[in-house]
């Protein structure tokens, strides 16, 4: 369990009540989770209007698919985050042009994450992940963060970071395998 177990339990209860179309539970779920999920959409899409559309689609999907949530596979927070990120990524793939095509000042990106907005609320899972990311080559961890927060493809990441595609794939794949090992220990 982690530091936010109480909240997680509550979210899981709300999600299971949403699965039987309890509107009050759904409204409370929205109240509790929409600020974080909206922040995520705005960050990934870079456009508030699109972020609203994606979050709307996501909550409609949550209402309809809550019955498919399996607590044995993921916490409610993970399930919600994953659902919203997938919607945002799908939306990004529908865009014709890469709106983030400008090359990044890659070396100037911070090595470390910004940390949770309220660090005291950071879950144990986050702290472990942050520690493991900190053990990676800084270029690799930056690439993983950039990918996670912008939903960019390998190709887009390679262009932004001005490295060959094969290099970017290698960085991220190594980072993912190292993260897996680190998180399992």
């Amino acid at each position: 369990m982690n530091d936010t177990s109480t909240e997680t339990d509550t979210l899981e209860q709300l999600l299971s009540r949403t699965a039987i179309h309890d509107r009050a539970a759904f409204a409370e779920l929205y109240r509790q989770t929409s600020p974080r999920l909206f922040g995520l959409c705005v960050r990934m899409l870079g456009d508030r209007g699109e972020a609203e559309e994606v979050l709307q689609e996501a909550f409609i999907a949550i209402w309809r698919r809550a019955g498919g949530y399996n607590p044995a596979l993921a916490s409610a927070g993970t399930w919600l985050t994953t659902l919203v990120r997938n919607r945002a990524i799908d939306r990004l793939r529908q865009r014709r042009a890469d709106t983030h095509a400008d090359p990044l000042e890659f070396e100037r990106l911070p090595d470390e994450g910004r940390g949770p907005a309220a660090h005291a609320e950071a879950s144990e899972d986050y702290r472990r992940l942050e520690r493991c990311l900190g053990q990676l080559d800084p270029k690799h961890s930056r690439s993983v963060r950039e990918a996670f927060f912008t939903g960019a493809t390998y190709k887009e990441l390679a262009m932004r970071c001005q490295v060959p595609l094969a290099t970017m794939k290698s960085w991220i794949r190594r980072a993912l395998l190292q993260l897996r090992t680190c998180l399992e220990t």
Partner: peptide, 18 residues
């Protein structure tokens, strides 16, 4: 993998939607 990676979302500041 969702369990492993999704905690990164905690780095993003919450923002109340309209």
């Amino acid at each position: 993998w969702s369990r492993r990676l999704s905690p990164l979302a905690e780095e993003i500041a919450a923002e109340t939607p309209p």
